[in-house]
Design a protein around this nucleic acid. Structure first.
Lengths: 241, 241
DNA sequence: ACTTATTTGTTCGTATGTATG
DNA sequence: ACATACATACGAACAAATAAG
């Protein structure tokens, strides 16, 4: 028998990693809890601390745990699966995941369409847009913050309505738009700036997912354009084909 | 007439932002070049430096420019549009964007399937997997680095074949698999660690897009699972519905 | 404000089994 | 058969950040 591997042929550090992953999955190590110290895990598995560190590094790379120097290693809360489909509604997605969805209006205003937004919405530059800035949460935890623009002429007093209804979908329904569909979604990532950190309750320097999307009416007419920033550590986009 | 807006009704900072965006688009400010200093831009537009800062902040939020304290503000290179569709092939996507795609084999090895990979691939835990670690580039610029696993029993000597062919698609074709499709893609974001930074030629602390995906044969049988990390500042995923 | 203990992060060294040629 | 390179594993010590008193 080798030192590095047993008869199974699986590296020791990987077996330790699998074991810890299992303990996370079955709730032995609950979400957001602190794992035992590296030396303690090493004693538990009768391996060297380096072996434990290799295992934890593998789990950290996959986002299952997070090491904090001087403090400990913690189980990451699972990310909300956020499917990007033809039908994509924040509240439906969050509710379907068993969480309580909520939207908080940050500001609503009328502004004149800059070039790029006007182009996406099929309007003229300078056309009046209703802009809604909102923070969306799941179980009181901020998930994303962003701005949404719609043609202001089509939805008079839309800002006040949103404040009451807390849902863009409902505001649109009030104006007779029963359904709409996601046309395209652009996704990239950035580092949380001070504004993100404050509104999303994130530490500075944490990653955010930067999303730009267009919704259209069922006949293909542009309806909603929005730009938002998601706390990457709380969501995982899912694209199914 | 208000102080903040002229007769057009467009905020001053937004007009400055639009102007700078235009200059970036038409090549007046080339990719990766340094913008004039904030005071200089302010003089050009006859506005206060604060107005310029507001404009630059808006562009930075959208990822068009990047401010470096003590150095200057730089034009970000445009991100490669990376569609996530049923048919998703790195080289095709990059070539279609007018870039030169390349793949560099980092390592190929046989390893035993851990629980999660085995489950995704429909194999038993411990089954032999061919693992290919590769770095993919566009125009010599690293785009993503990741690991790909396939059933080792189905593709003997797949590692050596990949080394020659530089393409998973071609290796599979060699074994008679003419086509496959993307089943699902999971996307989230993280911060580049030392390994990412070295392999992707990124600064520490920059964001990476973390992707896990499954490809299947046309009959739905699991074929390829892979985990990769994309330099977020160089790609933008596009989901079209 | 300071000290002390704990915990992760880093860098040495040593040894062994595996793969390559 | 041998040399070399590499991954794996263990041991020890110290640095750096954090938490507690």
């Amino acid at each position: 028998m080798s030192l590095a591997e047993t008869s199974t042929g699986v590296a020791l550090w990987r077996r330790v990693a699998d074991s810890i992953e299992q303990s996370i999955a079955d709730g032995t190590y609950p979400r957001n809890s602190k794992l035992p110290g590296e030396t303690e895990i090493a004693e538990l598995h009768r391996v060297n601390r380096h072996t434990v560190r290799r295992a934890l590094a593998a789990l950290a790379e996959r986002g299952l745990v997070r090491a904090e120097r001087g403090s400990g290693t913690y189980v990451e809360a699972p990310r909300i699966a956020y499917p990007l489909r033809s039908r994509t509604r924040f509240s439906e997605i969050v509710s379907a995941g068993g969480h309580e969805a909520s939207g908080k209006l940050l500001s609503a205003s009328i502004e004149d369409a800059p070039q790029d937004l006007a182009k996406h919405l099929g309007l003229k530059t300078g056309a009046p847009l209703l802009r809604i800035d909102a923070l969306r949460t799941a179980d009181r935890m901020p998930i994303c913050v962003g701005s949404t623009w719609v043609d202001a002429d089509r939805f008079p007093d839309g800002g006040k309505l949103y404040e009451k209804m807390q849902s863009i979908t409902k505001v649109l329904a009030h104006f007779g738009i029963r359904d709409y569909r996601r046309e395209w979604t652009n996704v990239t990532a950035a580092i949380a700036d001070a504004a993100d950190a404050a509104r999303l309750d994130l530490a500075l320097g944490r990653p955010v997912l930067v999303v730009e999307k267009l919704d259209t009416e069922m006949n293909g007419k542009p309806l909603i354009i929005s730009r938002s920033r998601f706390a990457a550590e709380r969501v995982q986009f899912v694209i199914e084909n």
